[in-house]
Design a protein around this nucleic acid. Structure first.
Length: 510
DNA sequence: CAGGACACTTAGCACATCCTTG
DNA sequence: CAAGGATGTGCTAAGTGTCCTG
């Protein structure tokens, strides 16, 4: 069933996926099945696939009443299981449902893709609640793996997943007090970096000339982390996950040095797969000292060797925490993202702009951050079509505008030739004027929409908005520009950032 | 100090739902 | 009111970073 359901997906054609799936499937077979079913390619899943598609179709064609009943049933489940009490406050739980079984599909070329992700039993689950709490009952005939009362952690339940052996957690929703406070702390640390970033930069520039190889490598890596907002790059276990890297785990094969490129000196060309196997490709002019060091680090190395062979994230973070309490590599990403947003908003928006223009500027500032952080998305499947549709609408609106303008002219002319003022004609003139103005506004809105859409086709704004941009910058901007906060944050974003919406003053500076 | 366990944040995609438009 | 595109939400994988152990 798991395999048959996925047949429309490209990854069921991948060798690794098929081999992993078949191996795990055979584990689940009886003796007889195992001797009968030996080659995946000889299996015909067509019938099961068709059955699944039919089921999906039935679901899609449910009547309004059936859909409503289903929705209400789901809501009941949320009401009953979707909340918990924390410090006497009722809080929404982020993910209260156990992950269902299925075939594992990692991102990128994952060596474990296709493996069977097993069903979690109550016997696998640890419950974490307070001693006084009434412990949720396990399903009939079952018991929990453990019930503990650890108030030093935030999770409510956990289990160990069978693909990587990692622990999965049930935790609170982002709009909870607990998560909000941690979010606020994160941005306060980033703001503290603002006060000492200059001296840290001076320090790593000096360190580029250090006699110690480790120190030089650390300085170059920090230069990248600061300038390019690269992730730290922890080591990963080979063969357990897709081959991806961050700053400290860059290999020789991931960079190319150009003494000159496109009219710039000392250019580093980056080309590697980062988190989620998203490609990072960038050509960056760097200062001479960095360039020279890189040449040195590359000497006598193979493409697969570590660029920073003396360095790892542990060393980097130990150094950073000595420069400022709480400072780690990822703080630079938060800091640079928020600073860029603040600067771009200042540069791009004018108080005299209309709301549509202001929002385009906001999106552009957001976009500058997303590009810095390399937050990409797949080109939407319907992009070309919907762009063409929008263009057609724009053209139609332009024609309409031209028409309304000539009509206005005519009415004006009529009013003039008549000599004596005719109240009826005057009203008509005013009406046409209004129509022209409305038409112009609509046209502008559409054109702005088209620009925004085009610039944004492969950029994901959500990730930075949710995780990197101090919401107080956006809230202060919205107040200063008199743009309602609803225009930049939707409902759940407003819930998540309620702390910032409540407390931010007009003059907030990140 | 390496390596693993653990806890938490960050990430993109698929699907659900909402909204607009003809 | 249906179609279809836009927007929002759920899901869960994939990172970061700390702590503990030997």
């Amino acid at each position: 069933m798991f395999f048959a359901q996925m047949l429309d997906h490209e990854y069921t054609t991948k060798t690794v996926f098929r081999e992993n799936f078949f191996q795990d499937w055979r584990e689940e077979m009886t003796h007889e099945e195992r001797s009968l079913i030996q080659v995946l390619d000889k299996c015909d899943f067509g019938e099961i696939h068709a059955m699944h598609k039919a089921k999906v179709e039935v679901r899609k064609n449910m009547s309004k009443e059936e859909k409503l009943a289903l929705k209400e049933a789901n809501q009941k489940i949320v009401d009953e299981y979707g909340f918990c009490m924390l410090d006497h406050h009722k809080e929404r739980i982020g993910n209260f449902k156990i992950e269902p079984p299925g075939l594992f599909r990692g991102r990128g070329e994952h060596p474990k893709q296709g493996m069977l992700k097993k069903r979690i039993q109550p016997e696998d689950v640890i419950i974490n609640c307070s001693k006084e709490a009434c412990v949720p009952l396990p399903p009939a005939g079952h018991r929990w793996k453990e019930v503990r009362h650890d108030n030093t952690v935030t999770w409510l339940a956990s289990w160990t997943e069978n693909i990587q052996g990692s622990i999965k957690y049930i935790m609170l929703n982002a709009n909870s007090k607990l998560k909000g406070e941690k979010d606020w702390e994160k941005y306060e640390v980033a703001r503290k970096l603002k006060t000492c970033v200059e001296s840290i930069r001076n320090q790593y520039l000096l360190d580029l000339k250090s006699k110690e190889m480790v120190t030089r490598q650390r300085a170059v890596a920090l230069y990248f982390i600061d300038k390019l907002a690269l992730r730290a790059g922890n080591e990963k276990e080979e063969g357990e996950t897709a081959d991806t890297v961050g700053c400290c785990s860059l290999r020789v094969e991931h960079i190319t040095l150009h003494e000159q490129l496109d009219g710039s000196d000392c250019v580093v060309e980056f080309d590697f797969l980062g988190k989620d196997s998203i490609r990072y490709y960038n050509k960056v002019p760097v200062i001479k000292k960095v360039f020279k060091n890189l040449k040195l680090f590359l000497e006598n190395k193979e493409p697969g060797d570590d660029l920073f062979d003396r360095l790892n994230t542990g060393l980097m973070n130990k150094h950073l925490s000595s420069l400022m309490p709480g400072l780690t590599a990822k703080v630079f990403r938060t800091y640079n993202a928020s600073i860029v947003l603040q600067e771009q908003l200042k540069e791009l928006t004018n108080k005299s702009d209309n709301e549509v223009e202001k929002l385009l500027s906001y999106n552009r500032a957001n976009r500058a951050v997303a590009i810095l952080c390399n937050h990409q998305r797949a080109l939407p499947k319907t992009f070309e079509q919907s762009m063409a549709n929008l263009q057609a609408k724009i053209d139609a609106r332009k024609e309409k505008l031209a028409l309304v303008k000539t009509e206005l002219k005519q009415v004006k002319k009529e009013a003039k030739t008549k000599g004596s003022p005719d109240p009826k004609l005057q009203v008509l003139v005013e009406r046409k004027k209004g129509a022209v103005q409305r038409c112009e506004e609509q046209l502008l809105k559409m054109e702005v929409q088209a620009t925004d859409k085009e610039e944004n086709k492969q950029v994901a704004l959500g990730t930075s908005k949710l995780n990197y941009l101090d919401p107080r910058i956006s809230v202060a901007w919205s107040k200063n520009m008199e743009v309602p906060v609803e225009k930049i944050y939707n409902k759940s974003q407003r819930d998540k950032f309620a702390w910032a919406i409540d407390m931010t003053e007009l003059d907030f500076e990140f």
